[in-house]
């Protein structure tokens, strides 16, 4: 499992716009860099990120090799109700990771 840093507020007022920031440990190998032997290393990137809030997709993104190593993404969503925020990363070589955070809306 790759290490992740996720910043979702624990609580928010209903209707507030909250900022979600995520960072996941991943090399994001571009497929263009040569290794010490001079051979080009195959591509190994995270291709897709999805964030769902109480089952509904609120943000998703398709990533390219142009995204830096340890992809960082920051976006916003409206705090609608108490529940869970689920974040999924999918990538090359069967990479898949899901993280959840609870949020309390008052």
């Amino acid at each position: 499992m790759a290490r992740v840093l996720i910043n979702v507020p624990r609580s928010a007022r209903r209707g507030d716009v909250i900022t979600i920031r995520t960072l996941i440990q991943h090399t994001m190998e571009t497929g263009y860099r040569p290794n010490a032997q001079g051979d080009v290393m195959p591509r190994d990137i995270i291709r897709r990120f999805t964030c769902t809030y109480d089952g509904a997709v609120v943000f998703s993104a398709e990533l390219s090799p142009a995204i830096a190593a340890n992809p960082f993404l920051s976006f916003t969503t409206v705090a609608t109700s108490s529940g869970t925020v689920t974040m999924t990363w999918e990538g090359d070589n069967g990479f898949a990771q899901t993280e959840t955070r609870a949020i309390e809306v008052t």
């Binding site: 716009v17 909250i18 920031r21 571009t30 809030y53 509904a56 997709v57 609120v58 943000f59 998703s60 993104a61 398709e62 990533l63 390219s64 090799p65 142009a66 995204i67 830096a68 340890n70 992809p71 960082f72 993404l73 920051s74 976006f75 916003t76 969503t77 409206v78 609608t80």
Partner: peptide, 21 residues
């Protein structure tokens, strides 16, 4: 291509930050 992000009215604000190469 660098990134394509899908948002909607539930985003509240249209803002996206990331780190690129």
């Amino acid at each position: 291509h660098v990134i394509t992000a899908q948002l909607g009215p539930r985003a509240g604000r249209a803002i996206l930050s990331t780190h690129i190469r």
